[in-house]
């Protein structure tokens, strides 16, 4: 019974091969590339910082969509990877190693190791147990960060400088930081998209629909899922690197379980399994959060019911709605 429920757990928005799938991402990235122009023609400068933050979370939401939407695995501990990326950045900068080309390999390595170990345990379970276990591992890292008294412990760690890249400071300037994040996001998007389109990605998708049939066909479902889990974790670590450089502060709250829940909501808000949906979802989420929190300090009282209503009454997220609005394809 439980394997049958898992397979239908997450249904993707669209069949993978569709010409329209190219149009929306292309428009999206074009708009994002032009966004800094809006500041020059009069948008407030804080707006670009908000958008940068949105793109950083878009990397994390995109990485989550790989296992959540494409793989059908509901991970409730994804913020742990984001937090690991941020903490590695914070600790290395504090220790005087601020070169991005030194920090990034360490982040990717640590996230891959953490993903491989926890993934090997988590993937022994399915369905609800998987949700709970990823949540528990997320909490484990959260408490570990709280206990890091040498690096701020519960209070967090303030960074007094940003990372450098080959000796330059692209992250110090607001606009060049924005473009750095955008390039990373585009790279991550192309990577994940290529991964999903590959033979490996097809096996991952097939395992979402029917893991028993896929394993009988001769594929090692757990191994495929584990590789996806590790890659997804590494990408989330990358977003943690940018987040630490953006806020110039890291704290255990970066990997609280609420943050994992928010990442899931971003992916679902955009439309699970479509990849660019996760990017749209993250941007929409952060803009909504920003607008509501300016409205009242109790913005969660409005936001909570919005999530509930969204889940109860919409299907397919923003990308699904856009598709309904647009012309019908084939």
């Amino acid at each position: 019974m439980s394997s049958a429920t898992t397979t239908s757990e997450v249904s993707s928005v669209a069949p993978p091969r569709e010409r329209a799938k190219l149009l929306l991402p292309a428009i999206l990235f074009l708009l994002l590339a032009l966004a800094p122009l809006a500041v020059t023609i009069g948008m407030p400068a804080g707006w670009l910082a908000l958008l940068t933050r949105a793109l950083i979370f878009a990397i994390a939401a995109l990485s989550l969509d790989l296992i959540l939407g494409v793989g059908g695995l509901v991970s409730f501990g994804h913020a742990a990877f984001l937090g690991i990326g941020a903490y590695v950045t914070g600790i290395m900068i504090t220790e005087g190693r601020s070169e991005a080309l030194v920090i990034l390999p360490v982040i990717l390595g640590v996230c891959a190791l953490f993903g491989a170990i926890t993934g090997a345990v988590c993937l022994r379970t399915r369905g609800v147990a998987f949700i709970m276990i990823t949540l528990a591992f997320g909490q484990m890292v959260y408490f570990l960060a709280q206990a890091l008294s040498a690096y701020g412990g519960d209070d967090g760690l303030t960074l007094y400088e940003k990372s450098t890249l080959l000796g330059f400071n692209p992250f110090a300037n607001r606009t060049s930081f924005y473009y750095s994040v955008l390039i990373a996001l585009a790279g991550a998007y192309l990577l994940v998209r290529g991964f999903v389109a590959s033979r490996f990605g097809r096996v991952l998708r097939a395992a979402r629909e029917n893991p028993v049939r896929v394993s009988v066909t001769g594929f090692d479902v757990t191994k495929v899922r584990l590789v996806a889990y590790v890659i997804s974790g590494m990408l989330a670590g990358l977003s943690g690197f940018f987040l630490a450089n953006h806020t110039e502060f890291v704290s255990p709250a970066f990997m609280s379980w609420q943050r994992s829940g928010e990442l899931i909501f971003m992916a679902v808000l955009g439309g699970v399994g479509s990849l660019h949906g996760a990017i749209i979802g993250a941007i929409a989420y952060l803009i909504a959060e920003d607008a509501l929190s300016h409205l009242t300090e109790h913005w969660r009282v409005i936001f909570g019911p919005m999530i509930i209503l969204f889940v109860l009454f919409t299907r397919g997220g923003i990308v699904g709605m856009l598709r309904k609005l647009g012309p019908r394809h084939g």
Partner: peptide
């Protein structure tokens, strides 16, 4: 599905 349940109760 479980994903919807997780999200809606998270909103709560």
């Amino acid at each position: 599905d479980h994903l919807d349940q997780v999200l809606a109760t998270f909103g709560l």
